[in-house]
Design a protein around this nucleic acid. Structure first.
Length: 230
DNA sequence: CGCCAGGGCCTCA
DNA sequence: TGAGGCCATGGC
């Protein structure tokens, strides 16, 4: 199967959608069920916005299952809150997010981000233009390009396509780029071929993650890919 | 046991 | 701007 023609990126999206169905990202912790669930039109409120941003920081180079446990602890200890995070001792915060790995580094990043939100309220940030908000997020220590884009798309509803290791792997295996392609290079290549629709941005990245998990893992042969092995 | 997981920062050429 | 070290848990 070849995808060298224009609109190939859109075709891949539709293929993934048919295969895996709507994903409804971002997962948000549900206190009743004690696990992460999906909501239509998330985030529903500022608490959701904060939790999504914390999750984006916690999931850096880490399996989501470990992040979910950390979020559970944060809720249990009533640490999902800007003031609560700033007031908490480093040791308490680090212990709560222990399961997410890099807990000392991430505890510090949660505090830095909470401090950022006291100086720039969520409602103010939501009113900003995508590129301006992206630049502002990238200036925060602990927020790189992927984390910034995850926050933009899933917390702030701004169309800035998320590129991660899975995105690079899948598009590299399909022959669009090298595995170590520059972030911006792959992002612009994809965005140029997509309508600037926030819902497509949300679903596309979620579908890429789902697809990578079920049939495009690092060690699995490219022959297992549904695109290359019809 | 080793590898991998929804990265990012710092240092040193 | 590129390469390498560092951060750390839990699942398989």
């Amino acid at each position: 199967m070849q995808f060298n023609e224009m609109m190939a990126v859109s075709k891949i999206y539709h293929t993934l959608f048919k295969r895996h169905g709507p994903q409804g990202w971002w997962p948000i912790f549900d206190k009743q069920q004690q696990r992460c669930v999906y909501h239509l039109n998330a985030p529903r409120n500022n608490d959701d916005v904060l939790e999504i941003c914390l999750g984006a920081l916690l999931t850096q180079n880490t399996a989501w299952t470990n992040v979910e446990k950390a979020l559970q602890q944060l809720h249990k200890q009533k640490l999902i809150g800007i003031k609560a995070i700033l007031a908490a001792e480093h040791e308490q915060l680090a212990a709560a997010i222990r399961s997410a790995g890099y807990f000392n580094q991430k505890a510090a990043r949660l505090k830095i981000f909470a401090d950022f939100l006291t100086k720039n309220t969520i409602s103010r940030l939501q009113k900003k233009e995508t590129t301006e908000l992206r630049k502002q997020l990238l200036a925060v220590k602990g927020i790189g390009q992927e984390t910034a884009d995850s926050m933009l798309v899933y917390a702030f509803n701004k169309p800035s396509f998320v590129v991660d290791a899975y995105t690079k792997r899948i598009f590299a295996r399909l022959g669009f780029c090298k595995e170590d392609v520059e972030y911006h290079e792959l992002q612009s290549m994809i965005a140029k071929q997509l309508p600037k629709d926030i819902n497509i941005y949300k679903e596309y990245h979620a579908l890429i993650v789902e697809h990578a998990k079920v049939c495009c893992q690092k060690k699995t042969s490219r022959n297992d890919c549904i695109f290359l092995n019809k």
